[in-house]
């Protein structure tokens, strides 16, 4: 029981990280990045590639990946989003657009990595398990949780203590008002988009250690899981995501212990229940009319 709870909390923090990027992009641009899970997958394969070919430590690989994907994120924003926002129904069309992108990423990844599942040696961060309240937890989970907490702390600092972060929050509150008060909406949004992608990559770099085997078609499942996490928290509120992740992680682990054959229902059931009975999410205040 104790082990279940502890691993639920740890894995929950990780799921929080996984939802964070998706939620951030939605919060700022009101578009749904259905390719989110595929970016997570790319992050995972980056680590796999670095480790298996160059024998690089995953943390170094993560650093390199972040630079690459921050650089990819910005042109990606300018290529897609401004055009999308001009259309009649950007929110709905973003679902389709990013679904297309996710197909492209998945197929390219299948060409590059094949379709077999790959794993990264989980003892790369040390094989000695860590003792938490008398339960031994594998080192790789601890690293994944630390990375998640770091990323969350970064997000907090960015949003509340930098100028551009405050501008970002202004856009999240009201896009047109922000625009009229002289904020360069596209520049701020582009950076937010790149950060959202980078967060997905960060979560991805830890998936081989938390979720096991990685394969190109895993993106879809990861996207739906991320959705469940952010809806439980509250859509558009980055901090709520952490709470969503925790609730999701603990529920999942409890189900795996007591009702394993129904465990895959957890994300969807939580999602529907929260949507219907507390439409603003657990931490949300605003109306849930996106």
């Amino acid at each position: 029981m104790l082990f279940t709870l502890i691993s639920g909390i740890l894995i929950g923090i990780f799921y929080g990280l996984m939802g964070l990027g998706l939620n951030f992009i939605f919060g700022v641009m009101k578009i749904v990045n259905l390719a989110h899970g595929d970016f997570v997958m790319l992050g995972a394969f980056g680590v796999y590639l670095a480790y298996s070919v160059w024998n690089l430590n995953p943390l170094i690989a993560l650093g390199i990946e972040l630079v690459i994907f921050l650089a990819i994120g910005i042109p990606l924003y300018y290529g897609f989003v401004p055009r999308l926002l001009k259309s009649r129904d950007p929110e709905m069309l973003s679902l389709i657009l990013f679904f297309g992108l996710s197909q492209v990423i998945e197929s390219l990844a299948s060409f590059a990595f094949g379709t077999n599942p790959d794993t990264v040696n989980p003892t790369v961060f040390g094989s000695q398990p860590v003792n938490i309240f008398g339960q031994s937890i594998q080192m790789s989970w601890i690293v994944a949780v630390l990375i998640s907490l770091l990323a969350m702390a970064f997000m907090y600092g960015y949003l509340y203590h930098t100028k551009i972060g405050i501008a970002t929050r202004a856009i999240m509150g009201h896009r047109t008002e922000a625009m009229s008060s002289g904020i360069n909406v596209h520049r701020v949004s582009a950076i937010a988009f790149a950060i959202g992608i980078a967060l997905a990559i960060t979560a991805g770099s830890m998936t081989p250690f938390v979720l096991g085997g990685i394969y190109p078609s895993m993106g879809v499942d990861l996207t739906t899981t991320s959705f469940a996490v952010i809806v439980i928290g509250s859509l558009g509120n980055p901090l709520g995501t952490i709470l969503g992740g925790l609730i999701y992680g603990i529920c999942l682990m409890l189900m795996q212990t007591y009702l394993p054959s129904w465990s895959s229902l957890v994300p969807y059931l939580l999602l529907i229940l929260i949507l219907l009975f507390r439409p603003s999410g657990l931490l949300g205040r605003r109306e849930r009319n996106a």
């Binding site: 959705f227 859509l235 009319n289 996106a290």
Partner: peptide
Amino acid sequence: LSGAYFSIGSLAASEI
């Protein structure tokens, strides 16, 4: 629900 919330909610419903 409306907008993306409805889409995601109906997706979750079908998975259930």
